[in-house]
């Protein structure tokens, strides 16, 4: 618990977040690069979808992070509401734009993939609509944070929205099983053997893991900026930037 207490200290977090961010960035970029290379070059052509399936290596990691990001924000929101931990508030606020951009990517790449495969850019079915709602939830958190002056009040409002909105996450995940949809069923996260050959699957998992590390890296830098802003009048921040 002592360790946790120290980690909750803002000056300590500010100091160690920089090397941690670097430690996430290097393997994250390498893994994502390998995954994308494997997906674009090494994976064999899909027998049904041709080369269009290679969009998968951007689409699936983005979609995964859209769900992972929002779930982590809901957990942080819970911690922020119950224990008033400032770092949880800052995480929530910093993760929102990163999560929103991955949600945007999942929607756009899905749409670009849908055009040649389904013959349409968009359908109002369960998977696509619930993912679009997720984007609006992210944007709602960002807008709410920008609209409220007091950072603590803003963080409380955002925490509530993140917690209420998290109900959408399992709906997105199971939407392809609960409703009829154009979207294909789960390939990776089903029980038993994944419905995919290893030389297609391994790069995908590398890309997903790499993008997750990149998500952590970007969120940490967002947290650093947010932390400086919120603590700009505190003594430790001023001492950090004073020449003496």
């Amino acid at each position: 618990m002592l360790w946790l207490h120290r980690f909750g200290s803002l000056p300590y977090f500010y100091r160690i977040s920089r090397p941690i961010a670097l430690a996430l960035a290097v393997p994250g970029v390498l893994l994502a690069a390998y995954g994308v290379y494997g997906g674009l070059v090494e994976a064999p052509v899909d027998y049904q979808q041709g080369d269009a399936f290679r969009i998968l290596y951007i689409h699936v990691p983005s979609a995964w992070l859209s769900l992972f990001g929002y779930t982590s924000m809901a957990v942080a929101g819970f911690v922020a509401l119950v224990w008033r931990l400032k770092l949880a508030e800052i995480f929530l606020v910093a993760a929102a734009p990163v999560g929103a951009s991955f949600t945007f990517l999942a929607l756009v790449t899905g749409s670009i993939w849908g055009k040649p495969m389904w013959g349409t850019w968009w359908v109002w079915d369960a998977r696509l609509t619930s993912e679009l709602i997720l984007l609006f939830l992210y944007l709602g958190v960002i807008a709410l944070h920008n609209a409220i002056e007091s950072p603590r009040t803003a963080a409380r409002a955002c925490s509530l929205l993140a917690l209420v909105g998290v109900i959408n996450v399992p709906i997105i995940h199971y939407s392809v099983e609960w409703w009829n949809t154009l979207h294909q069923g789960p390939t990776v996260t089903r029980f038993g053997r994944p419905a995919m050959e290893m030389d297609m699957l391994v790069p995908l998992l590398c890309a997903a893991l790499g993008f997750t590390l990149i998500f952590g890296w970007l969120t940490l830098w967002g947290m650093r900026a947010q932390l400086l802003w919120r603590e700009r009048r505190s003594r430790w921040v001023k001492r950090l930037f004073s020449d003496g």
């Binding site: 994308v36 052509v45 269009a52 969009i55 951007i58 983005s62 993939w113």
Partner: peptide, 18 residues
């Protein structure tokens, strides 16, 4: 990309920009 160049590369391009 087996005729899907516009779809594949625009996806990767947008991802890079974001």
């Amino acid at each position: 990309m087996g005729g899907y160049a516009a779809y594949v590369w625009s996806s990767y391009g947008i991802a890079a920009v974001v």
